[in-house]
Amino acid sequence: MAKIILTTDVANLGGPGDIVEVKDGYARNYLLPRGYAIPSSKGAEKNVRTIRRAQEGRRIRDLDHAKEVKATLESLETIQLFAKAAEGSKKLFGSVTTGDIVSAVKAAGGPLLDKRVIELREHIKTVGKHQVNARLHPDVQAGIRLEVKPKQ
């Protein structure tokens, strides 16, 4: 059995900062490579509070909090995101990720979100205006207006 510290929510196992024991193969082949956990040590156990604090800042606590975050997101103007694009073309090199969107929302003065709440209907691979949804709570979904511009 391996003793590990979870860094994110893992179904049927625990939440960020929880110290759990799992089978060696599960830790070595699944949790550790994906960054869902770190090996437990005295130094790492001291960092548990830091892990919990970082996750708490992004977590939506309840329905009322989700509604507040939705109001904040929808009050923002169109969020601008810069990405590398082919010169004279609307095509991007690669695509816009949920992490890019979360960073752009934060830079525009919006709340800090977890990238897992962002829902992309299809990959954003072109310059222009796009609509993205954020599922903040099972009952609350917010629309985010996004404008992708070519990086100079």
Results as ranks from 00 to 15, higher is better:
2 A>G: 02
3 K>D: 01
7 T>V: 00
7 T>E: 02
9 D>L: 00
11 A>K: 15
11 A>T: 12
14 G>V: 05
15 G>T: 12
17 G>H: 06
18 D>K: 06
25 G>N: 11
25 G>V: 06
26 Y>S: 01
30 Y>I: 04
32 L>D: 08
32 L>I: 15
33 P>Q: 06
35 G>T: 02
35 G>S: 10
37 A>M: 02
37 A>T: 04
38 I>V: 15
38 I>S: 01
39 P>C: 00
41 S>P: 01
42 K>I: 08
43 G>S: 13
44 A>I: 00
44 A>W: 04
44 A>K: 04
47 N>R: 15
49 R>L: 14
49 R>C: 04
50 T>P: 01
51 I>N: 03
52 R>C: 07
53 R>D: 10
53 R>K: 14
54 A>H: 13
62 D>I: 12
63 L>H: 07
64 D>C: 00
67 K>M: 13
69 V>D: 08
70 K>G: 01
75 S>L: 09
76 L>W: 09
78 T>R: 08
82 F>V: 02
85 A>Y: 13
86 A>V: 14
86 A>S: 14
89 S>C: 08
90 K>G: 15
91 K>D: 02
92 L>N: 07
93 F>E: 07
94 G>P: 13
94 G>M: 13
97 T>W: 07
101 I>S: 05
102 V>S: 01
105 V>G: 04
107 A>R: 14
108 A>K: 13
112 L>S: 08
112 L>N: 03
113 L>N: 06
115 K>E: 14
116 R>F: 02
117 V>M: 03
120 L>V: 12
123 H>G: 05
123 H>L: 15
128 G>L: 11
131 Q>R: 12
132 V>I: 14
135 R>W: 02
140 V>H: 02
141 Q>K: 15
144 I>E: 06
144 I>S: 06
147 E>L: 11
147 E>Q: 15
149 K>A: 07
150 P>C: 08
150 P>G: 04
151 K>D: 12
